[in-house]
Amino acid sequence: MLAHTAALAPSLTVQGLSKSFGERRAVRDVSFDVARGELLAVIGPNGAGKTTLLSMLAGILEPDTGTVAQPDRTTARIGWVPQQTAVYGKLTVAQNLRLFAKLEKVADVDATVRRMLEQTGLEQRADDELGKLSGGNRQRVNIAVGLLADPPVLLLDEPSGALDPRQRERLWGFITALTDRGTAVIFCTHDIAEAERHAHRVLVLADGEALFNGTAAELKAVADADEGHDLEQAFVGFLRERGH
């Protein structure tokens, strides 16, 4: 695993990001960065602005103010994996990967498809229609599509929401392998325990505001959680103290 220190060059730098929908301010002046090989969890209650933040990072939504920069590889596209699988159910696994590889203008399409099939462990299911796969396997293809262009930063929106525990474990093994290879991963989740277990750092959002940015242990300390309390209890207490 890569060491995550301040000395590591950031893969993504976010400065003063804001977004409003009419009168409602969904994201307010959020700033953070994420280093190469780092796994950042964005946690917060429903309506906190997590998906809006990820959509702006992915380039789907235009921010009202603020910037998203990739200091080391400014031309590389950020990988994005939406919450719901965004692949074609009537195409096979290989056809989906091939289509998106071509749309991503990947240099060697065949080699990339082979690599992604290998990484996702779906070589045997390459010719199966996606609609006939389990939810876990579909999500693996969903993530694989996000990785086709070998992005330096990968965004995952609630990646394990629809998976059973065994599928979830396999998914996190896959994501951890990505960060080990140097991909920076930002994921948003409701599952605080999952964030505590897998993330190197957590960013707490509430009502569009970034209230905390640090490790799970630091969040517990800030929340002044009693010994024996887990991160979820600390997180709830932290939000309550701040009126959320």
């Binding site: 992915a58 380039g59 789907i60 596209r77 994005w80 939406p82 719901q84 699988t85 965004a86 692949v87 074609y88 159910g89 998106f100 749309l103 991503e104 599509v145």
Partner: peptide, 12 residues
């Protein structure tokens, strides 16, 4: 199929 948002990111 939720693919439009993926395509709309500059792929198509």
């Amino acid at each position: 199929e939720n693919t439009f948002s993926r395509l709309a990111r500059g792929l198509m």
